[in-house]
Structures are given as structure tokens and as C-alpha cells.
Design a protein around this nucleic acid. Structure first.
Lengths: 126, 126
DNA sequence: ATATGTACCATGCATCATACTGGTACATAT
DNA sequence: ATATGTACCAGTATGATGCATGGTACATAT
């Protein structure tokens, strides 16, 4: 599995990593049950921080593309291939596009939309 | 019509101006058809940039609170009172809140939502 | 001449949130 | 001893954004 990280790419490192692992699954380069490099190992190889790799792994596990088994390491999820085709980001993009289109039609300024968005995101009431 | 602008107020100047004009309409201090000070005149009185006043006027016209008649000046909109009670920003906030709540429930990370949002905002296809 | 709204050019400043980094620590198990 | 994922503390830097500013110019009309 060859991973290439470009620090000059505007795409965040953790996103690049996620995409490439997903792609590797889709290409069949890694298959269900295969072991993935450990977080620290991969971070060392790619010369990036382990927290960044951990972030990618955490999100990939949320998407059921990989599975972590504690001290035993991380493995490709049984349904990885199917789940790699599902892109949550696409869903997010579509939902947001719809709303923003409506708001723009109502005359809302991009500036106003951005400000309101920031307000919503920073006011979590958990 | 007394307008008071506080440059130390964290609320943007153009927002302060919009709010006070709306409030003046609601209070009946200015009524439909009344003439408003010209952009340059008001900017001079308040000692702020004319572009800032122009911005407030532009947004107030979008909200149908005022009406500009080219070289003749700016006047209070016939339906100003009704439209002054409507706050577009509230609408924007509500729409965005709904969508974001849905996305979060689906497991979307704030990070992912923000990235997608940025993508949508920067990809206008007009 | 004077004044209206509007449009374009542009810049400085402050703010904010992200992404990334680093260090330390823990329970787990080999 | 070594390694796993995970968690907490924290700081930095980069970029994006909004706000406000300035100057100039135009067509319009009094």
C-alpha cells in the first residue's frame, strides 16, 4: 500500500489519508481482514504527526472502512469495499447545497450565510 | 431621526445602522414615503465611510425597508413597517440549524461539515 | 455647479477556526 | 520491554473572512 502525502496540497492531510486508504480498498490493494500499519508506524513513515493519522483512522472506523481491535492493531473492515463507496461527504455536500441555494434565492448574502453558519457551528448545546 | 454609532461596539457599524433605521420605522419615527438622508450626508454626520452607509442602505433595500430612487434620494418603503419585523438572518439561522442537526445525527464531523460548506460556498455556478 | 445612487479599483486590520504539531499518560497484551 | 489504540493537556501557523477604509468615476437630474 503506497500512501503519498502532499503537504502543499490544500486538502487536509487527514483527508488525503482517508481518501487513499478508501481507494486502496476499492482497488483491492487491501482486503477485508488485512492488517493496517499501526498509527505510530504510519505516522513515522509519512513523517506526519500520529494524531493526524489517528484522526483519519477514527473517521474511517466511523465509516466502517476499518476496524480497530485495541492492542492488536487495526484491520480492514469486513464490509470495507461496500462502505468505501459510500461517501458521507457527498451527502453532506448535497444537503448543504440545497439549503444554501434556497437562502441565496431569498437574497441572503454569502457573508450573511457564512456568519450564520459559524454561529450555528459554535453553539452546540450538547 | 437620531442615529448613534458606537465604534467600540462589537456589532458591525453597518448592522448598527440597519437596526436603528428598522427600529425608527417600527417606532413610527419615520414613515412610509419619508425621505432618508443621502448616503454621503449620513456618512458625514456619523463620521463613517460612505461605503459603510451604502452597504446598510443596500441591504435595507433588499429587505424592502427602504427604496432608492436614483438621483432623487432614498425613501422609506411603503411596506417598511411590516418588513422591518422580518429578520432574514433569523431565517438563515433556522435553515442552517436544521440541516446541520441532521448531518450531525448522521455522524458527520464538524470538520467535515465545515469543509463541505466551504466547498459549496466557493463553487457558485451562476 | 451640485447632488443623487452606484460601480469599480484597492488596502489594512482584526478576528476566528482549522489543521497540525508536541508531550505525556493509561490499560491492554505480547 | 515493546507495542497497540486512546485520551488529555497544550501551542502554533496558516488561511479565510469580514469590516471598514480610501479614491475615482459614471449617468442621472436639479
Amino acid at each position: 500500500m503506497e500512501i503519498i502525502i502532499d503537504i502543499d496540497d490544500p486538502v487536509p492531510l487527514f483527508s488525503q489519508l482517508m481518501e487513499q486508504i478508501k481507494q486502496a480498498v476499492l482497488d483491492g490493494k487491501i482486503k477485508a481482514g488485512d492488517a493496517l500499519p499501526s498509527i505510530r508506524q504510519l505516522a513515522n513513515d509519512l513523517d506526519i504527526n500520529s494524531k493526524t493519522v489517528a484522526k483519519s483512522y477514527r473517521l474511517l472506523e466511523r465509516d466502517n472502512v476499518i476496524q480497530t481491535k485495541g492492542y492488536r492493531g487495526t484491520f480492514v473492515h469486513p464490509d470495507a469495499k461496500v462502505n468505501s463507496m459510500i461517501d458521507l461527504n457527498t451527502t453532506i455536500f448535497e444537503h448543504l447545497s440545497k439549503v444554501i441555494e434556497v437562502l441565496r434565492d431569498r437574497g441572503a448574502t454569502d457573508s450573511e450565510i457564512r456568519i450564520a453558519f459559524g454561529t450555528v457551528m459554535n453553539n452546540r448545546k450538547d
